[in-house]
Design a protein around this nucleic acid. Sequence first.
DNA 1: CTGCGTGTTGCACA
DNA 2: GTGTGCAACACGCA
Length: 260
Amino acid sequence: MPELPEVEYYKGVIDQSCIGKRIKKAQVLVPYLLQGTTGNGFARLFTGAKLTETYRKGKFLFARSDKGVWLSLHFGLTGDLIFSREKEIPRFAAFYFEFDKGMLVFTDMRKFGRFGVIEDPHDFLSTRKWGPDALEISKEEFIGGIGKRKVAIKTLLMDQKFIAGIGNEYSDEILYRARLHPEKLANSIKPEMQKELFKISRAVLKQAIKLEAEREKMKKKLFFVANRKAGLECPNCGGPTSSLTVGGRTAYFCPKCQKK
DNA sequence: CTGCGTGTTGCACA
DNA sequence: GTGTGCAACACGCA
């Protein structure tokens, strides 16, 4: 679930509720998901600290502490970040920061997410060879990449080393809007459509951010993000939607509207 | 009970 | 180097 728009929303959660406030207590509940230090080390590092700024790239989120390190977050499949004013600790909480009024909680039911302590986000990302963020990549780089890769366009859009931030759901939405078949080879896309695809990618992500990546709000406007099933009525042609495995992932699309 | 899945990594193979 | 396919991670749900 958490792709670029969701992570951007989580960035806002920290920005609006946590920046500049003293962390009264930091606690790790699922050390299995923690990287770069131990549960105790993490607790010691953040208890008494203040978060000073956040930075998102692709599906990664970072928050700087005034003690000179950064918190790194990756949401995996089911990671979630909430600011809660309740007393009890939410189910599946992996760690929390307690503030004067409320707590920031990272939950992850399926435990594919990760959190940790790092020195510097840029070093961290460059060692993993992450590509530019989907909202920051230049038109030239986007088009250049598409032109020379002989892979299914869906696979390329989801390739984090090409562009960071787009996952299975938003890639389906982008291709639906561009009327491109998910299996169409990237290097077979015509120049006009390359430009169009660049525009549409940005538009889809920005629209989702505007809707706070909320399923309910996206239901009508981002059809394949919110509706992941075959046999549904395509909002455009009324025909049934279909599914296909592309690059090991399930693609939902409309076979009538999206041609190779 | 079986199969499936929103993400990433690593590895075998063509 | 390029690209593909799969397994693994953990867990709820249909």
